[in-house]
Computed example of a mutant assay.
Amino acid sequence: MRRLAATFALLFGSPALALELPAWLAGHWQTRGGQTTTEEVWLAPADGLMTGMSRTSGGKKPFFEFARLEQRGGKLLYIAQPGGAAPTEFSLTASDAESFRAENPGHDFPQRIIYERRGNDGIDARIEGDIDGKPQVQHWQYFRVR
């Protein structure tokens, strides 16, 4: 599928960015690693907005983040508030029925946020960017909580 999209982009220019919110993200998701558990909960889209939160527990100290996906001015934004901090906006630069990528090249870390749907019951999420000129990636494999 990605090869087909890349070929299309070469022949006809970049495909239009899908402006629909990723309804497939709605639900309760969880991953475990060692002593830690990370959960994300996303509400279904309504009026151009999805709200979400994440919580990591069982590690050295608990962590939480508020997030939202919103349609604004003809574009989609991913807005993160780790630890309840001031919001940081990332513009969606790629979006289709199975994934999205949001970017903010001026942010310290991450500069990219990527979510990919894995069937109905899985999501791969990762954040990417540079810290002190060195590439960094953090990755989570979530499974739907029933």
Rank of each mutant, 00 (worst) to 15 (best):
M1A: 15
R2K: 12
R3D: 15
L4E: 12
A5I: 07
T7S: 09
F8K: 02
F8A: 15
A9F: 01
A9I: 00
L11A: 11
L11E: 09
L11T: 09
F12L: 12
F12H: 12
S14W: 00
S14Q: 07
A16D: 02
A16Q: 03
L17K: 01
L19M: 05
L19A: 03
E20T: 14
L21G: 10
L21Y: 03
A23M: 03
L25A: 13
A26Y: 09
A26M: 11
H28F: 11
W29D: 14
W29V: 12
G33Q: 14
G34Q: 14
G34I: 13
Q35V: 11
Q35M: 11
T36W: 10
T37R: 12
T37K: 08
T37V: 15
T38Q: 07
E39M: 09
V41T: 15
V41A: 14
V41F: 13
W42H: 11
M50W: 03
M50K: 08
R55H: 13
T56I: 07
G58C: 10
G59Q: 03
K60E: 13
K60L: 15
P62M: 11
F64A: 14
E65T: 12
A67P: 01
A67I: 13
R68N: 07
L69R: 06
R72Q: 12
G73H: 13
G73M: 02
K75G: 06
K75V: 08
L77R: 04
L77K: 06
I79D: 05
A80P: 07
G84Q: 09
A86T: 11
A86M: 05
A86E: 12
P87F: 05
P87R: 06
S91F: 00
S91Q: 04
L92H: 02
L92Y: 00
A94W: 00
A94G: 04
S95D: 04
D96A: 05
D96K: 01
A97L: 03
F100D: 01
R101I: 00
A102L: 02
E103D: 11
N104I: 03
N104S: 08
P105F: 00
G106E: 14
H107A: 13
D108Y: 15
P110M: 07
Q111L: 02
Q111T: 09
R112M: 01
I114Q: 10
I114Y: 03
I114A: 03
E116C: 08
R118T: 14
G119T: 11
G119D: 11
D121G: 12
D121N: 14
G122F: 10
I123F: 02
D124V: 13
A125D: 06
R126C: 13
R126Y: 02
I127A: 05
E128L: 04
E128P: 03
D130F: 03
V137Y: 08
V137R: 04
Q138I: 13
Q138P: 00
Y142S: 10
Y142Q: 14
F143I: 09
F143R: 15
R144K: 15
V145Y: 08
V145N: 01
R146W: 04
